[in-house]
Design a protein around this nucleic acid. Structure first.
Lengths: 229, 229
DNA sequence: CTAAAAATATGATATTTATCAGTAAATGGT
DNA sequence: ACCATTTACTGATAAATATCATATTTTTAG
């Protein structure tokens, strides 16, 4: 509430850094900060969004419900990511739900601030475009992975991904703790299968666990597994 | 060769329509037209691109090779689509190969014409952004489909997709004829599995075939299958 | 037109993965 | 701290899919 976008360090991580001082001032004046509790939605699939959400703290899962009642998690978004951008740009309702995996703090920015700037500041538009291009590349990679790798390989990859993107805590566990169900929804498999593979990895000494926390024990072997050795 | 972008009707389908007359003139002066034979690449995964390719005729598959030697086709691009845009925008080498499925005619546009316009014409940038946003949505949908639907459902979906996007010929066959292998690479399954399902669909009266041509016979049942009935 | 190569097709089988059933452990609310 | 509820885990089994082998058809090159 008190803090101004102009001073917000989070900005450096996303396309808002390409805004001019004046544009940023407007954004700051119109934004509102929200806290979202673990498990609560920021928005849900099919909703019309009146703005975007800039993540200040915590992690959100972007997922889509399929006909059989299972969620597929398409992306995990954390500090600095802007949610709902795609939807605001295409003026369509959202394709994905955004649900808090952690307790979160996000800034809601009304869409006018964004769309106005998109029409007048090519640097900003280009910056948004670059981010979108990056997301598209990642999405393409996910498609190839899901269809060409086994569940075991994708599980290994998921753990390495979590390590690279969210780091580890003091005890060597992955800093982002997901439920087994969330893990299975990232990987695109049945929850029981995910659990089974976790047990197997544990037996083989690739990972160690404590409650729902998971730690990586043998990074090299996990990497080899991803590559198919 | 003789034709000018200013007069090119293809332009209406892609982001080039947001260019000014002068910008288009520059593009037209710098572009070169190429013909690509069926099976030949326009560019290959990992290449650095010096420009983008605007499809005038024919269809290209955008695919990525996975560790196990199988291609995954991420998208089929036809008339009006601009290939290599993502790569030029992010200034990275291409993530995907583009291979002609048909005999093709494409216009190569050097990247300078594009990047210059991106920096100066916000309408153009916004238009590109909208296209990219659309592609990203489609990619997300593919992710959900691949991980949550059975091979059979995805096969049914693929046929309907081909019908919707490329139409049918006079005899009621899908206008775009893909090899069984290409079909399996779109769907993300083994070629034998794809063939088996084609046989099954044929027996059930959902489709009919003649050589490698496939025609849709019972659209309603295919749709129901996709939905999981 | 014909031989060779490639693509399509089908059967048998192995492997992977999902589903169902049930138990154990962890978590949250009062 | 205790009960209720959710989450994690394990086994048995079924279903989906891949793989291997091989036959047939189609396409291509000469």
């Amino acid at each position: 509430m008190e803090s101004r976008c102009e001073n917000c360090i989070i900005r450096q991580f996303n396309s808002l850094r390409a805004m001019s001082k004046e544009e940023l001032k407007k954004v700051s004046d119109s934004k509102t900060t929200k806290t979202i509790k673990k498990g609560e939605p920021i928005f849900e699939e099919g909703e019309k969004l009146n703005g975007v959400y800039c993540v200040r703290n915590g992690v959100s899962k972007l997922s889509k419900l399929s006909a059989n009642g299972k969620d597929q998690i398409v992306k995990l978004a954390s500090k600095g990511e802007v949610l709902g951008q795609r939807s605001v740009i295409s003026q369509e309702s959202t394709n994905l739900s955004a649900i808090a995996v952690d307790d979160m703090e996000v800034c809601f920015i009304p869409k006018e601030s964004i769309t106005n700037t998109l029409q007048t500041n090519p640097n900003f538009t280009l910056e948004v475009l670059r981010h979108m291009a990056h997301d598209l590349k990642e999405a393409d990679d996910v498609i190839v992975n899901i269809s060409q790798k086994t569940v075991k390989q994708r599980m290994a990859e998921a753990f390495l991904y979590l390590q690279n993107n969210f780091g580890e805590d003091a005890d060597g566990f992955l800093a982002l703790t997901l439920s087994r169900e969330d893990i299975s929804n990232v990987v695109g498999t049945a929850t029981e299968s995910a659990i089974r593979i976790i047990s197997e990895f544990k037996k083989k000494g690739l990972i160690h666990t404590s409650g729902k926390k998971i730690g990586i024990k043998d990074e090299r072997k996990l990497l080899e597994m991803v590559e198919g050795f």
